[in-house]
Design a protein around this nucleic acid. Sequence first.
RNA 1: AGGGGUGUCGCCAAGCGGUAAGGCAACGGGUUUUGAUCCCGUCAUUCGUAGGUUCAAAUCCUGCCACCCCUGCCA
Length: 556
Amino acid sequence: MSDTPDKPKHFIRQIIDGDLESGKHSRVGTRFPPEPNGFLHVGHAKAICLNFGLAQDYQGQCNLRFDDTNPAKEEERYAKAIEEDVHWLGFEWNGDIRHASDYFDQLYVFAKELIEKGLAYVDELSPEDIREYRGTFEVPGKNSPYRERPIKESLELFERMKAGEFEDGKMCLRAKINMASPNINMRDPVIYRIKHQHHHRTGDKWCIYPMYDFTHCISDALEGITHSLCTLEFEDHRPLYDWVLDNISIDCHPQQIEFSRLNLEHTVTSKRKLNQLVADGHVDGWDDPRMPTISGMRRRGFTPESIRDMCDRIGITKKVNTTEMGVLENCVREDLDKNAQRVMVVLDPVKVVITNYPDDKVEELTAPNHPKEDMGTRTIYMSKEVFIDRADFREEANKKYKRLVLGKSVRLRNSYVITATDVVKNEKGDILEIHCEYDPDTLGKNPEGQKPKGVIHWVSSSHSLPATVRLYDRLFNVPNPGSEENLVSTLNPESLKVIDGARVEMSLKTVAPETRFQFEREGYFCSDRYDCKEGSLVFNRTVTLRDSWAKIENKG
RNA sequence: AGGGGUGUCGCCAAGCGGUAAGGCAACGGGUUUUGAUCCCGUCAUUCGUAGGUUCAAAUCCUGCCACCCCUGCCA
């Protein structure tokens, strides 16, 4: 009903289809509930695509809700960044943004209801004692001495907690469930704690804040969520999710369903670790193009489509999984191959003098912006001196090398065929310039007899512009940095190489920020959304082109 | 050692009792003014493992093994 019949449905879709068929639900309501304590990363993208995607496909709604129950960790600036990321990924939430803090009043009333029913009590055990009393995996917990205190007393104490009469940690509200439960989450979990802490939305109205397990299920129910999707580590919390909703006066009971989080090779997706990278200055902020954050990937040049495509391809299951970088790379390449304009940029320029080309002549040539798609053409300039990449010339080479070789010819992409006649070096042996002759009769056609084996890119020395190009590579050298004892030691020292002397063709003179291109024969690049301006061009490499030459070369 | 989960190709992932989809990667070959793209071909007699049920099992049953998560007044 939501997909083409040949596309397999993951288990959550199967559950939803079942619920719709059985009449359990007549609509689908999901939510994406981030805590505003950091930037969203690629793992969140999976959850976003799932929740918003399901709502879209079933013509339901998906809410954006900030899970802001811990004012000690949360900040408004994170909330803003999250909103922007969700939008950028291409999703629109249902109505206004929700906040768990919008429900603090109702949550408080529900907490009192539990107390009145004898299902919650105010505990005065210290945090250390609570831990002690909780027991272990093998040993059952024991009841708090305050567990059986009169309902009236708990009610009064809870109100006094709210009134600010007690210090942090002196008391807390606990659900009265079962201290001997094999599920530790059910051993009288704390549902409210005292925190004399300013909240970024409710200010100083509260000094008691509800815990996640109490808040989340009620927030879901209040919003009429039908399917509450979360990651695997919450499986053990589901009995508590259900217990709370079963014991308060609320007529909605969403179903919590767990799926496995995304792990991407060579990245970390732990807010704590990402925060560490930022705080310790290993990267240039949360949106550094090397970061697996949504904003970092955006700045790097990934498209929302490519990220969504990856989420689509990896599927939804309950298996612990690690996706290879190749999948993501394939997704951007596929998108950008089809949609990015082609342009010529020389990253490591070496001068080529075309000896038989008229000294002051400048020819305007027309180059297609895309080899297949109809994306128009642009003007490129041909002159006596051009730059090519150092890697595209060798004084001698075997037959496998298809670029410029002394005495041999090569095609300048979108221009003439040239033949290398001489090379000028300094005393150290560095190549200063390469002398070539061009064949004027090779524009748009091959020379008589033979066809040049290679094609290389180039720019006119006089009609090109300087640019800074940032070459990014994986941030970590090991596939699973998150499992490493010392994260920092696995950082890739070559994750960023800044090239200051690149030369770009004239069409890039007034490029808008955040425009994506294929630099022919090099890779996909994006003009930096903050640093790129006319007169100071800056491009970030998103990903290289697939490089089968590298394989041949490495084999020897 | 208690509870909760998961085991299908190098990485993802379909499959839901009728005899192993697909994607990525890899490897061959073709086209090409990007060593890109595109195209064509190869890539699990086997589904963690050992038994059992059945005419028939990746799918049902039993035992075993491996891995992940859980003892915050974090989410």
